[in-house]
């Protein structure tokens, strides 16, 4: 058996002493795109935070292996340096810090940890401009403070810009499609698809099958009650759209 890029094994995790993930199993191979769907409050964002190593999200059982090594004891920036990226469901505002400066700090932060030299400022500027343009983002947006005064859709696009610049190996996208108009959805999906490749894997969290028309997943999972209760191919998303979560939630409770 070839080694998976990500292997989540019987993962239990608590937030403020409350168990949210209750024995979650999931494997993602290199180059694969997996979608996770599930009702509100089922633990999707919690899973993304646990993967990213957020303080306060405690792993109480099981393990998360990335390239065969456990991530559990690593701080968030170490995981980022290993190529893990999380597009936030609610992107955070950082007043006074321009997008450009933020991106530069992020890339150099990762490079520093990897023992690579800092990027040349001019080269980097050019590189970012190309990526921004592909996402229909203006230079003006690069000069504005991170997410401050951005519309919901602009914030989501900004997440994808950061992903495009950081070129992660494993990207977790938490409801990146919510709040996007139809054109923006297409732009973002194109941006994500442009990053698809044999060495890059993605975990796409969404409520809507529509996104999966654009970003076609290799596998679809249903998360309910802190566990994966069903897995299938992209047909599963269509099935869900028709029938809702009711039967799966029952299954989780059982």
């Amino acid at each position: 058996m070839t080694q998976k890029m990500l292997e989540i094994k019987d993962l239990h995790a608590t937030v403020d002493g409350k168990e949210i993930l209750k024995g979650l199993n999931l494997s993602i191979g290199a180059g694969e795109v997996h979608a996770i769907m599930g009702p509100n409050g089922s633990g999707k964002s919690t899973l993304s935070y646990v993967l990213a190593g957020r303080d306060g999200y405690e792993v109480t059982g099981g393990d998360v292996l990335y390239d065969g090594e456990s991530l559990v004891d690593l701080v968030p920036e170490e995981r980022a340096a290993k190529g893990l990226f999380l597009a936030f469901q609610y992107p955070v505002e950082i007043p006074g810090v321009t997008n450009m400066i933020f991106l530069k700090n992020a890339v150099n932060g990762v490079r520093k940890q990897r023992g690579e030299p800092e990027l040349d400022a001019m080269e980097f500027l050019k590189f970012v401009r190309v990526k921004a343009k592909a996402l229909s983002m203006t230079d003006d947006m690069l000069k504005r403070a991170v997410n401050v005064g951005f519309s919901g859709g602009e914030k989501k696009r900004n997440e994808i810009l950061q992903m495009a610049v950081l070129e992660p190996r494993l990207a977790v996208l938490d409801e990146t499609d919510s709040g996007l108009d139809i054109d923006a959805l297409k732009v973002v999906a194109d941006g994500v698809n442009a990053l698809r490749g044999p060495e890059r894997s993605m975990l796409v969290i969404t409520h809507y099958q529509r996104l999966l028309d654009y970003i076609v997943p290799d596998h679809v999972h249903i998360l309910a009650g802190g566990r994966i209760v069903r897995s299938g191919d992209k047909g599963l998303a269509l099935e869900l759209e028709e029938r809702g979560y009711a039967e799966f939630v029952d299954q989780a409770a059982a």
Binding site: A52, E77, L86, F102, N105, A106, V110, L166
Partner: peptide
């Protein structure tokens, strides 16, 4: 905490 985590997730040390 949100701001700190956001930065750190992007690879910027605490």
């Amino acid at each position: 905490d949100d701001q700190l985590f956001y930065c750190r997730q992007r690879g910027i040390g605490a």
